[in-house]
Every structure is written in C-alpha cells, then in structure tokens.
C-alpha cells in the first residue's frame, strides 16, 4: 500500500483525498457487493457462467457467498416455486441490512412461461420479497446479469446512509 508506506510519507507528498462520508461509504459498498448465489433453475447456469472465467463477475467485486448472513445482494436465479417461496423469504430475512435483490429471468419476474398452467409456480418473486432490479430474459445472458448488477451499483451510489441514520 503506497499510502501507508513509511518510505514516502503520505503527508509529505500531500496525498490527501477529501471526500464526503456518504461517497466514501457508498464507493466501498458498491465495489464489494457480496452475492448470495443459490441456483434455483436454468438461470443458475448463466449465473455460474457469469461467475466463471469468460464473464468474470469478480471484477465488479462480487464474490459468491453461500450464507445469507454474509451477503449484500441476493440473486434470485430462476423459477421460485410455492414450496421454495417460504424458504426464499426466510433467507431474505436472514440477510443483514442494507440488502438488495436482483430478480434474474422471466420466471422470477412474473412467472415466465409457467404463468398460466403452473399450479406450483409463484408468479413473480415480488409477491413474497421486495425486488430492486429485474433482469428480463429466459434466461438472461450473462451480460444482462452484469448490467443488472451495475444498476444495483448505481442505486447504491445514490443512497445516503448518513441521512437515514439521522
């Protein structure tokens, strides 16, 4: 770390950055959004492809975490069935605030191709948990998922933790 290096004292070479607390906090938060990845259906394969070598979601600071207690964003990747919906809600409630939800794919947006005869499919995950970003597609391409992620980052950038604290 250049700033903390004793050989070139940061205060001598005037390397001081002045910024707002919100900007700094938001910058820190948006560049390390840990993702709770749990594969639900077909979209999970595209999520895996996005986190593998070709698309490399890691460059956005996204690290897949298996536990809801360590994650900032939840990726609903695929069809949420009625049997799974209660579990999804439970996982959402276990996540610490502030938390963001990306709904990936038509199924979790609105029921997708299963909207009419799917007696066991929840028609949209937003019926049980609030959603921040909807990524359309069946399945969305990994690029579309990255776009959705950037949308979340934009949302984080505009937020103010200081204001809500007061």
């Amino acid at each position: 770390m250049g700033l903390l290096n004793k050989q070139d004292n940061p205060f001598e070479s005037s390397n001081i950055v002045i910024t707002g607390a919100d900007t700094l906090l938001n910058w820190a938060r948006l560049s390390s959004l840990w993702m709770m990845g749990f594969g639900l259906a077909c979209c999970a394969i595209e999520m895996m492809a996005a986190s593998a070598s070709h698309y490399d979601i890691g460059r956005f600071g996204v690290i897949p975490r298996p536990s809801p207690r360590q994650s900032d964003i939840m990726l609903i990747s695929g069809t949420v069935t009625l049997k799974m919906a209660t579990r999804t809600k439970l996982l959402y409630e276990q996540m610490p605030d502030p938390k963001y939800i990306i709904s990936m794919g038509s199924c979790s947006n609105c029921g997708g191709p299963y909207w009419e005869h799917g007696y066991h499919v929840l028609k949209g995950v937003d019926r049980v948990i609030p959603v921040d970003v909807y990524v359309p597609g069946c399945p969305p391409r990994p690029e579309a998922l990255l776009e959705g992620l950037i949308k979340v980052q934009e949302k984080v950038r505009k937020q103010s933790l200081a204001k809500t604290a007061v």
Binding site: G111, E116, Y119, L122, K123
Partner: peptide
C-alpha cells in the same frame, strides 16, 4: 378435473 387453488399458504397462485 383438477382446478388450481386460489391461495396456498397465503400466497396467491393464479397470475
């Protein structure tokens, strides 16, 4: 002759 349920565990089933 099966009909979709209206609600299941408080969740609305039809679109």
């Amino acid at each position: 002759d099966y009909k979709q349920p209206e609600f299941y565990r408080g969740m609305k089933v039809p679109y």
